[in-house]
Design a protein around this nucleic acid. Structure first.
Length: 924
RNA sequence: GCGUCUAUAGCUCAGUUGGUUAGAGCGCUACCUUGACAUGGUAGAGGUCCCCUGUUCGAAUCAGGGUAGACGCACCA
């Protein structure tokens, strides 16, 4: 084995071996355990969030697979309507073409070609991450089977009246020329203006002043509203206004939606271009005048002067014209929330169009109940509040999109515009008795991408057929996802799965935090702080990293800033840390907080951890290969240390499994890290040396220690495997032939059983014994450290106050103590026997004395004792204070008081001994 | 406006139902190339647990009120 761990040399071939051997498939036996991969966009590439969540999913999958469950990780990708269409359109644009030049059919063909060619990026990257989903079941949301499920759901919901078509005000993206749902609109506060305009009364008796942030919409005004109780405007209610520019007469109406204190208390009402106005328009039966085109230009229903103007140009023109007419009273700066499309960033326009909707209220109810009843559990639990809040106020879902890439809506129109919904055109014709003389044309629109995503839990299991998979893997065990898609996806899956299978889609919803950069900023291309998980695995030189981060930047200044920042942060580029280190980092950072600041230093730390495992394994192999490890029997005597490491391992195993149970991957990671580094490496490996490198050891003792070395390591590798698949399998291949485990040639660790807690190996006494040994050794190290005595200098130790227990332990651990603290002699002082002036360490009540003659600096030892005394004294006085407080003694539980008493006693004894010691030395 | 979350060592974070000497990693200091590992070892320094008030024998932990920050939903033209 190499001296350092080189992840590059093992990972890819390791993965290939697993995949070729078909190890990712569900076993078909055991309890079902299923995780649904949130299908990433086909356009996508792996980002840190994916890496993080997939690490968790894979750890769970591997763990449950090893536990013997019938484990399925269902994988697939999403067609991501808007995102994908935009990618392909951008390519066309680069060739100077638009999708309209190709036409619908050819364009879609082009998208499929693109998907075949580039769609596999992310699944390739998932393999680099070591994920173990069942690739043989990989699906795409536009596959035939899934499309069938989509159609089926649409038709069924339509039959029940839960999908309907209607002309309503929708969020319109004028760049994409499509409607989008409420969730796809982001409202950001921006600086704008408030224009105050005079609207003259039709009868010439006066005027009203209205305030607006969107003066151009006045072209579509059909009323002015005031509050019914507003004393200022009482007399005007019912009168008419002569709208400037258009000259139309519009009524003054009263509606208590109007806030008297805001603006002037008069609101212009434009029902076709504002959601609130739309509602008011319906209440008052106002006409709805649409003044815009699909791309948000002024349409031909407006006065000629403005036709064809972009809405923002029209705004300028209208403001200028109003001003010229003396109608514009004032302009104030004003902050307002501007709705923008989440994909395009374009200002969204409320726009009157025909769209398809899902009536969600009746679907929401059982979905709410599923969480309220505890059938579905959010982890951490408080996310259910977010869920309820949205679900209780849920609005009908606009599902039609005026795009080409997606599931086409299964609705057909005849020449009269009547609409027929069915699975196919033939079905529609049969059902409605439409002969071949009737021309039918299919609806041009496609469905919102999230519509098919909502069916993921059952559509991937073969629905609408009644399949065994549906029976076995619905509900799935846990959904691992981010809080950003609770509404988009999680809630909708619950609604649809409940509706169509009667079952919940998953039992637990583990909501992960969002990965941010080291400063807590969101990682984004424009900030130039994006990390690519693959770069952390393979490493990347600084030039390539800068190029990557600044590629395709529209603004050169921004690119420069990003380059500078990147060079500063990574002067040497990024090292290759390997997949296992990255995965372990993700796991270790998975605490309950909602934001996770990604700290590169931690990856480095865990890379070092990998190296530690590697070298510990080297040590173990060096001492076991070509030796008798007791694999085939032979007498074995286990040392105290051997029994201790087994006991410690049992503890670790219990803690680890508990942590996974609670989805606390940070605790799980910490637990195994602590065991591996601080117990196994720091102590156990050192404690084997006195046995193995000692001529006095019997063959049975050596065999026992070798056996323990190799088998604890073997078990530890299996324990670590869910988090660090590559390094564990690689080492395990070397280790297993020496271990007690009998497996076939070429077997992989990933399908072995997970270690099981062995009650026979749990041993509190042995744990306490080694704690005593550690205290002893650390005590001597302390003296050496602070007295500046070389670790190589052999010492003679005297022991005072030695109890029977101490004597027993001393006897059992003599070899360990001699070797690890380099002791030449250890002498037990008899009661009352005078000790020479010595440096002291305490192990419980036993004193270790290192005679000072020729060794120790008197002042240094006095200082050392003083320091120790101060520390203990502080504690003792606090404890004494507590115990002398009557209220504490009468109110606190007996166990707590007892603990304090014991602490006090122990502290006082220690203090007394140190004091005595201090005096002895001082007297020198 | 409604709701959620966060504040602990220089940095990134743990801290389970109130009872610890408040922990870890990284960083820092000193010493050490000892035959697994310098991507290492040994020892060590470092904290007003954001502030105030309360509950309690006892508060980082519970309650109330602040301060600072993050986020979600709704929204005033």
């Amino acid at each position: 084995m190499d001296k350092t761990f080189e992840p590059q040399s093992i990972e890819q071939q390791c993965y290939k071996a697993w995949e070729d051997a078909g190890l990712f498939k569900a076993s078909g036996s055991g309890d079902p355990y299923c995780i649904l991969l949130p299908p990433p966009n086909v356009t996508g590439s792996l980002h840190m969030g994916h890496g993080f969540q997939q690490t968790i999913m894979d750890a769970l999958t591997r763990y449950h697979r090893m536990k013997g469950d019938n484990t399925l990780w269902q994988v697939g990708t999403d067609h991501a309507g808007i995102a994908t269409q935009m990618v392909v359109e951008r390519q066309l644009n680069a060739e100077g073409k638009t999708r309209h030049d190709l036409g619908r059919e050819d364009f879609i063909k082009k998208v499929w070609e693109w998907k075949e060619h580039s769609g596999g990026t992310i699944t390739g990257q998932m393999r680099r991450l070591g994920t173990s989903p069942d690739w043989s079941r990989e699906v795409f949301t536009m596959d035939e089977d899934l499309s069938k499920a989509v159609t089926e759901v649409f038709v069924k919901l339509h039959e029940e009246g839960l999908i309907y078509r209607g002309k309503r005000l929708v969020n319109w993206d004028p760049v994409l020329h499509t409607a989008v749902s409420d969730l796809e609109v982001l409202n950001e506060e921006e600086d704008g203006h408030m224009w105050h305009m005079r609207y003259p009364l039709a009868d010439g008796s006066g005027e009203l002043v209205v305030a607006t942030t969107r003066p151009e919409t006045m072209l579509g005004d059909t009323a002015v509203a005031v509050h019914p109780d507003d004393e200022r405007y009482q007399s005007l209610i019912g009168k008419e206004i002569k709208l400037p520019i258009t000259g139309r007469l519009i009524p003054i109406i009263a509606d208590d939606y109007v806030e008297q204190d805001f603006g002037t208390g008069c609101v212009k009402i434009t029902p076709a271009h504002d959601f609130n106005d739309y509602d008011m328009g319906k209440r008052h039966n106002l006409p709805m005048i649409n003044i815009l085109t699909d791309d948000a230009k002024i349409n031909d229903d407006a006065p000629e002067a403005y036709r064809g103007l972009d809405r923002f140009d029209a705004r300028k023109q209208i403001v200028a014209d109003l001003d010229a007419q003396g109608v514009l009273m004032k302009i104030e700066p004003h902050k307002l929330k501007v709705p923008r499309g989440d994909r395009t960033g374009a200002v969204i326009e409320p726009y009157l169009t025909d769209q398809w909707y899902v009536a969600v209220e009746s679907l929401a109810k059982p979905a709410i109940e599923a969480v309220e009843s505890g059938e579905i559990r959010f982890v951490p639990e408080n996310w259910n509040k977010t869920y309820y809040q949205w679900m209780h106020n849920i609005q009908d879902w606009c599902i039609s999109r005026q795009l080409w890439w997606g599931h086409r809506i299964p609705a057909w129109y005849d020449e009269n515009g009547s609409v027929y919904v069915g699975r196919t055109e033939e079905e529609v014709r049969d059902k409605h008795g439409l002969g071949s003389d009737v021309t039918l044309s299919q609806d041009d629109d496609v469905l919102d991408t999230w519509f098919s995503s909502a069916l993921w839990p059952f559509a991937t299991m073969g629905w609408p057929e009644e399949t065994p998979d549906l029976e076995t893997f619905v509900p799935s065990s846990v959904l691992v996802t981010g809080f950003d898609i609770i509404f988009f996806w999680v809630a909708r899956m619950i609604m649809m799965t409940k509706k169509f299978t009667g079952k919940i889609p998953f039992k637990d919803i583990y909501i992960t935090g969002l990965i941010r950069d080291e400063n807590g900023d969101k990682m984004s291309k424009s900030k130039g702080n994006v990390l690519d998980p693959i770069d952390l695995i393979d490493g990347i030189d600084i030039e390539s990293l800068v190029t990557k981060r600044t590629a395709g930047m529209m603004q050169p200044q921004l690119a420069e800033k990003i380059a500078k920042r990147t060079r500063k942060q990574f002067p040497e580029g990024i090292q290759a840390y390997g997949t296992d280190a990255l995965r372990f980092t993700f796991a270790a950072m998975a605490s309950t907080s909602r934001d996770i600041n990604f700290d590169m230093a931690r990856v480095e730390g865990y890379r070092n951890f990998c190296n530690k495992i590697w070298n510990a394994s080297r040590f173990v192999l060096m001492n076991t290969e070509e030796h008798d490890t007791g694999r085939d029997g032979g007498e074995m005597v286990l040392s105290l240390a051997d029994r201790w490491i087994w006991a410690k391992f049992q503890q670790t195993l219990v803690e680890f499994e508990k942590a996974l149970e609670d989805y606390r991957f940070d605790i799980a990671a910490q637990t195994v890290y602590e065991f591996t580094w601080n117990q196994f490496c720091d102590w156990y490996l050192e404690l084997t040396k006195p046995v193995l490198n000692n001529d006095a050891s019997t063959e049975a003792e050596k065999r026992g220690t070798r056996h323990t070395l190799i088998n604890v390591l073997e078990s530890l590798l299996r324990l670590l495997h869910p988090l660090m698949p590559f390094i564990t399998d690689t080492i395990w291949q070397r280790v297993v032939p020496l271990s007690a485990l009998k497996v076939e040639e070429g077997a992989s660790i990933m399908v072995q059983t997970f270690p099981e807690v062995d009650a026979a190996k749990q041993d509190d006494n042995v744990l306490a014994d080694i704690e005593w040994v550690k205290k002893f050794i650390v005590g001597i190290r302390n003296i050496r450290g602070e007295m500046d005595i070389s670790p190589n200098k052999p010492l003679n130790a005297l022991l005072k106050n030695v109890s029977d227990e101490d004597a027993r332990r001393l006897d059992a651990a003599k070899a360990f103590l001699d070797k690890l603290s380099k002791l030449e002699t250890v002498t037990i002082l008899k009661d009352g026997e005078q000790a020479p002036a010595s440096a002291t360490a305490l192990v419980g009540e036993m004193e270790i004395l290192i005679p000072m003659a020729g060794l120790i600096d008197k002042d240094a030892e006095l200082a050392r004792i003083t320091k120790a005394m101060e520390k203990i004294d502080k504690d003792v006085s606090r404890t004494r204070g507590k115990l002398s407080n009557d209220k504490f003694v009468s109110n606190a539980p007996e166990a707590v008081i007892e603990k304090e008493r014991a602490k006090l006693e122990e502290g006082e004894k220690a203090l007394a001994k140190l004091k005595e010691q201090f005096e002895t030395i001082q007297a020198l």
